[in-house]
Design a binder for these strands. Structure first.
Length: 138
DNA sequence: GCCAACGTTGGC
DNA sequence: GCCAACGTTGGC
């Protein structure tokens, strides 16, 4: 099992939209590194949903409900999508500022490549996010 | 709103 | 194949 994090702009499509749609096609990724990560997702892998923007933070957990397939909106066949399903909102959002201060994430692409929209996390990092989400101030 | 970092494009 | 110019993303 692998662990993932997918970024989204909450004004465009946020956690609440994902909950409402029940099973959503995660589309619009137009970056090779992010696409390659999506192609490595397996059904059932956990995916943190991250809101970028004013208060960047991880807000909830979803899971891959369908592994990658061709983006139906892309006639060239270059880009992929997956389907994800919301599982659980985090008790408290885990802010990027917290992640940056935490040495477990020092080598993470979350810190080193802020522009990447789909990241893989280690098991330790995944568990650290879960643990941080239990704290009101993080 | 600004700007740094990154990715892509296109000229050579 | 290199690299300058440009566009975009996302944190602050």
């Amino acid at each position: 099992m692998k662990y993932w994090l997918a970024k989204t702009e909450p004004e465009e499509y946020g956690w609440d939209d994902l909950v409402a749609s029940e099973d959503a096609m995660w589309n619009g990724v137009r970056n090779y590194a992010a696409r390659n990560n999506m192609q490595r997702m397996a059904k059932g892998d956990p995916v943190f949903i991250y809101h970028s923007g004013k208060k960047p933070a991880i807000v909830g957990i979803a899971e891959v409900s369908r592994p990658h397939y061709d983006d139906p909106a892309d006639p060239t066949g270059t880009w992929s999508v997956v389907n994800v399903r919301a599982k659980q909102k985090l008790k408290h959002p885990v802010h990027l500022s917290t992640i940056k201060k935490n040495k477990v994430f020092a080598e993470s692409s979350l810190v080193k490549n802020s522009r990447l929209s789909v990241h893989e996390l280690s098991e330790d990092q995944f568990n650290e996010v879960l643990s941080l989400s239990e704290k009101a101030i993080n």
